[in-house]
Every structure is written in C-alpha cells, then in structure tokens.
C-alpha cells in the first residue's frame, strides 16, 4: 500500500462510518442505509472482478453465476439442512472455488473473445440449473424463509447493524486486494495484462496466476452471494441471470478497471442507480445500462477513477495560479 492508498483508505473509512448518522437523520434519504448494504455486497463482487479484469486482464461474464452459487449454497444449507449460516458461507465459497477451478483451468487457456463467450455460456448454464432443480432450489419461484445472520447470539436485524458488518467485510477484502496488487503476485498480474508472452518469458507463472485470481474472484462473489441471501432472506433465479453478470462488469467499467477504489465507487453508483435513480425508467433501465456501458467503453476507458488525478491536477494548477497572483 502506498501513501495515497493509505489516505484514501482512512478517508473512505470515515465517510462510510459517518454515513448512517447523516442519512438516518435526513428523512428523505434514511432508506439509503439499506441501499448501501446492497452496495457493500455488490462491492465485494466488483472487487473480485476488478482484480480479474483490471489486473489480470481477463473478462468474466459469469460473476452472477458464482454470486448465485454462493447464494443458493447458503440458502439450501441453512433452510433445508439446518446448517449455521456462518458454516454455510465458507461451504458456498468452497463450492464456487471448486467450480471456478474446474472451469478456469481450461477456460483461461482461452483469450479475449473466447474466454468471454465461455464464461457467458457457463453463466447461462448455471442460471438454467437454478431454474430447473426445483427440488433443491425451488425453481423459478425461488426460496423463502432463509434465516438471517447472528453474531454471538445477537441477531442482525437492523439495517445499520448490517451496514457496519458488510462494510467491514468490504474493507477487509479491499485491504487484502491492495496488499495483493502491490505484492509480487500483483506485479506479475499487471505484467500478464500488459503482455502475456513477455510476462511468461520473465518467469511469471501466467497460467497459475490467472486461475488463482479467477478462483479468488469467484470466492469473493460467492461470499457476497451468501450475505445477499441472509440479508434479503429469499431467493429467485432472476437475480443471477446474464443481466446481472453484465451489471457487475459495468460496475467495474464505470469505476475504472485499473482501480480497486473505482470498483467500489462503481458498485455504489450502480446500486444507487439500479435501486433508486433509474426506477422511473422501470423496464427500460436496460437501455440506460446499455448506453452507460457503451459510453464507458468508448469515451472513458479508464473509468471514473481515471478522472480523479485529472481533477486533482486542475485543482492544484488553479490553486498555484491563485497563490502566484
């Protein structure tokens, strides 16, 4: 972690810590705490995807499938088999990791378009399975009555409690990711992104790193899925379809593929967009998403995070200008 990241980390921590205090006292935005819980859950997914897209340079259209695997593992294990949710969560993550490994080893030999199509196909297969295995998943009508979470006998019922819990998990994940990208592994990953052949000839175990980061992103998605299940306490396959995979990619694209901070920013912005601001479009929000994705890819390939240094630069220039006068 460098100095900038440390300051950003502290700054974001403070913002996140005071947010419920502000939001709950202003009537018209008091439900934003609830939205922020979802934003936290989706941030976990987008952090993993950002590592995969921005640092390893591989695209995955199957994040919603891993999210779904985590969610349904938790749902089935707790409500059908009576497991403790905290046991079901690592179990779900384990299942997702295993599936990601099985898919990842052959898929990551593929590049670019092929990998995108392979993960796309895999995501659709998982979605079909979730809809068809009625005995376990409840089929298209989904599952209800999934228990919530308990910490040391204390039930997490209020939104504020959930908010602080989920964002502390996000911060832990972020800390971990930041350490990874400034480590040997992270440098190797960036080398793969730049030029895979060159990276390999310099002794970076490219195949191994790509699979590892794919599995890591799947685990983060599955954990996010578990939290999602226990927060909403009901599930249906509609939350894990192709559109959601595209949304996760959009979160990373909007925030900036090369920045973990951007991934969180993108997740928060798009969650607010999806849950709040785009509600007036109802079904046609899909058009807005398409337009956003297109604009992000065409005009802002670095995402919003790439604007931050520019804005700071302009600010600094005008400041020095003012001081000189």
């Amino acid at each position: 972690m460098n100095k900038k990241d440390r300051w950003a980390f502290v700054g974001m921590g403070l913002l996140i810590a005071v947010f419920p205090g502000v939001a709950l006292n202003v009537k018209c935005i008091s439900h934003y705490v609830d939205v922020m819980v979802f934003a936290g859950i989706f941030s976990l997914v987008s952090l993993g995807l950002c590592m995969l897209m921005g640092y390893a340079g591989q695209v995955s259209m199957a994040q919603a499938a891993f999210f779904g695997i985590g969610a349904y593992s938790s749902g089935i294990l707790t409500s059908r088999l009576g497991w403790n949710p905290w046991m079901a969560m690592p179990a779900g993550a384990g299942v997702a990791a295993l599936v990601a490994w099985i898919i990842g080893v052959p898929a990551l030999r593929l590049k670019g378009h092929y990998l995108a199509m392979a993960t796309l196909g895999f995501g659709v297969i998982v979605h079909i399975i979730l809809g068809e295995e009625v005995k376990w998943t409840g089929g298209p009508s989904g599952m209800v009555d999934i228990p919530g979470l308990q910490i040391a006998g204390w039930k997490l019922t209020s939104e504020v409690a959930w908010y602080y819990m989920i964002w502390s998990v996000v911060f832990m994940a972020l800390l971990f990711c930041l350490h990874v990208i400034y480590s040997r592994v992270g440098r190797g990953l960036r080398a793969i992104h730049e030029e895979e052949m060159a990276a390999e000839s310099m002794g970076v175990p490219t195949a191994c790193y790509k699979v590892q980061i794919f599995v890591f992103s799947a685990i983060l998605s599955a954990i996010a899925g578990s939290f999602y299940t226990h927060y909403v306490t009901c599930l249906n396959p509609g939350s894990f379809n192709l559109m959601w995979s595209i949304r996760f990619v959009l979160m990373v694209m909007v925030g900036g593929t090369q920045s973990l901070w951007g991934a969180i920013l993108g997740a928060v912005l798009l969650t607010f967009a999806g849950n709040e601001w785009l509600q007036i479009f109802s079904d046609f929000e899909i058009l807005v998403y398409g337009a956003m994705l297109l604009c992000a890819a065409l005009f802002l390939p670095g995402g919003l995070a790439s604007l931050v240094p520019k804005v700071i630069g302009v600010f600094r220039n005008s400041l020095t200008h003012l001081c000189k006068r």
């Binding site: 593929t257 994705l293 390939p301």
Partner: peptide, 14 residues
C-alpha cells in the same frame, strides 16, 4: 479486445 467485447455487448443490450 476487452473494450471491443464490452462494446458489442453494450450494442446488444441497446
């Protein structure tokens, strides 16, 4: 390649 994939997907959504 990554951008082109995203762009054609965006067109398909549109």
């Amino acid at each position: 390649v990554l951008s082109l994939i995203i762009i054609t997907i965006a067109v398909s959504i549109l």
